[in-house]
């Protein structure tokens, strides 16, 4: 069994339902994403279009992140999922340097690497990944790519010639496919990112991966004495923010 994903970009309407469902399901901390939907504007007025591309870990068959991880915190499951054991992770960020898709982040709460696991915990219980369930257009298709009768296998066969993966030249063999993708949607070098300008938000650069309020000394003291921010979670951070607004 090899579990894979396929996103039909012709169906995706950019609602970001999958992005939010993922954040809620996996309690992904603020300023981190396991799955995000990239918006791209193409053309100039009045001849313009906008395209949407959900991006997540590709669960590569030949995963550079798994290869570089010095302690096997990143490892393959029998069903093809590239999983991560945050208890094992030493926080070297090697995987962040290795993943050609920028799919890994340093969790600011656990200070370990994290990423999409295709909701391995849900799959174990017989459920679909939460992003699949949330998608109103059924643009996210998930299943066993080794089973010829699965929906994903049939979809791939029906769309022969129009099925793409990101950066095939990297030989990572992604188990994540797109239908209706093109250079602009799948190639990060095909478009411009204007620093400080965005439709909904500012494009900014994080100071450092992980928790920006955690000093180098904290890395040593925290496991012994704890950290004043220990109890911070999404809710308390939101509370703090809303207090600051008043």
């Amino acid at each position: 069994m090899k579990l894979g994903f396929l996103v039909d970009l012709n169906l995706c309407m950019g609602c970001k339902g999958c992005e939010i469902a993922c954040k809620v399901e996996n309690e992904v901390p603020l300023s981190s994403w396991r799955l995000r939907v990239k918006y791209i504007d193409i053309g100039s007025f009045p001849d313009t279009s906008r395209s949407f591309t959900p991006l997540r870990c590709n669960h590569c068959e030949n995963a550079p992140c798994e290869r570089i991880c010095p302690v096997s915190a990143l490892h393959y499951l029998d069903n093809g999922i590239v999983n991560i054991d945050s208890e094992r992770c030493i926080g070297c960020a090697g995987c962040m340097m290795a993943c050609p898709y920028g799919a890994i982040y340093m969790d600011p709460e656990s200070n370990t690497a994290d990423k999409c696991t295709y909701c391995a915990h849900r799959i174990e219980g017989g459920l679909m990944p939460s992003c699949v369930v949330a998608c109103p257009t059924e643009a996210n298709i998930f299943g066993d790519v080794e089973d010829e009768t699965s929906q994903i296998s049939r979809y791939i066969m029906e769309h022969q010639g129009n099925v793409q993966v990101r950066k095939p030249e990297k030989h990572t063999n992604p188990l994540h496919y797109y239908v209706g993708g093109g250079n602009n949607t799948l190639n990060p070098l095909a478009h411009e990112r204007i620093e400080g300008y965005g439709l909904f938000n500012n494009i900014t650069t994080l100071d450092h991966p992980g928790n920006p309020n955690r000093s180098i000394l904290d890395r040593f003291l925290e496991p012994i004495f704890g950290h004043p921010n220990d109890n911070l979670d999404n809710k308390s951070l939101l509370d703090m923010n809303s207090k600051g607004d008043k």
Binding site: Y39, G43, S44, A190, H191, F200, N201, I203
Partner: peptide
């Protein structure tokens, strides 16, 4: 203003997450 300086064929990312910056510094 700066949008008008982008070529008609050039795509622009309009919504994106923050870039993680320098990981190994």
């Amino acid at each position: 203003d700066h949008v008008s300086t982008i070529e008609a064929t050039k795509a622009i990312v309009t919504m994106d997450v923050a870039h993680t910056g320098i990981i190994w510094g």
